[in-house]
Design a protein around this nucleic acid. Structure first.
Lengths: 153, 153
DNA sequence: TTTTTTAGTTTGAATTTCAAACTATCCTGC
DNA sequence: GCAGGATAGTTTGAAATTCAAACTAAAAAA
């Protein structure tokens, strides 16, 4: 039981502390790079727009707001700013003029690639310290975390 | 290489999506419980104060602000509010009157215990899906994440 | 053709945060 | 001692972020 408790403390530490770090480091990484004038939130809006267009999962303003779990009003604000900064473009749908479709500009896609490479470095870094079996166990643990959260919604 | 890429995508998904959930669920969990009038930020201030007093790692305002990585001004604001709400107490140090030491009230400690039990549930939930070896691998993976973040500071 | 619904924007208020100025206290060197 | 600098915390003013609710325009339903 002693050992289990040690593991408990360590896991809790990681889940509490380490993952707060992700945002912080992500932010710092953004501030250092080419796209200083983007906040993490803005970067995530760009990312969501790029992903939606790649995977064709819906690039309407509503879709993006829903994916990011932010309100429509908040998205409008961010999108207006990002458009002014030249990262994304609004396009009114031809069939249904109520709908605004969102696209990244070249600059936006470039910012997204830079951001992706941050994630890529992070993930490959973790993977390199583990063998295949270890990766599988890590994923299994993270999966059960996800299940825990889904059941708590 | 195909398989490695699948793992990559899955890991990235967890690191990006799942851990954003922690804050959300934590927030929702708070709003449901006995201590509705506490934000996640406020809860974390209480938690930091309780932990600091348990472990005697420094309960000065400066120590707490540093542990939470927030500015002194921000902490002052939060502490004033939490004191008004009855969760914590300021005490001026006797030796050095510049120093403000922070303590949780009974109510504050009670809120902290409720919050701890949320974490406890979360962590034991993950641990229950794994055997000892699995837990060790999970921790190893998380550790390498932490190392990645520390090297990126 | 009305009425209702949907998509997005605007508005107004609340919250959160921080840097910088400020106050009070302590420490150092003369 | 005491002047000058350092330290702890607070206050202030401004910026950023967010959302609900009111609003506009367009589409769908009745």
């Amino acid at each position: 039981m002693r050992i289990i408790n040690d593991y408990y403390a360590e896991l809790n530490h990681f889940l509490v502390e380490v993952f707060n770090e992700i945002l912080r480091v992500e932010e710092a990484s953004l501030k250092k790079g080419e796209f200083k004038n983007l906040s993490v939130r803005e970067m995530h809006v760009i990312e969501a727009i790029c992903t939606a267009n790649e995977r064709e999962t819906g690039n309407r303003a509503t879709d993006i707001a829903h994916a990011l779990r932010i309100s429509a009003g908040t998205l409008t604000t961010t999108v207006s700013l990002l458009e002014k900064k030249g990262y994304i473009k609004r396009k009114q749908d031809v069939q249904d003029k109520r709908i605004i479709r969102l696209f990244a500009t070249e600059k936006g896609m470039s910012a997204n690639r830079a951001h992706q490479s941050f994630h890529h470095e992070m993930v490959t870094n973790v993977m390199n310290t583990l063998d295949i079996e270890g990766i599988e166990v890590l994923i299994k643990g993270l999966k059960s975390l996800e299940m825990f959260f889904n059941s708590n919604k």
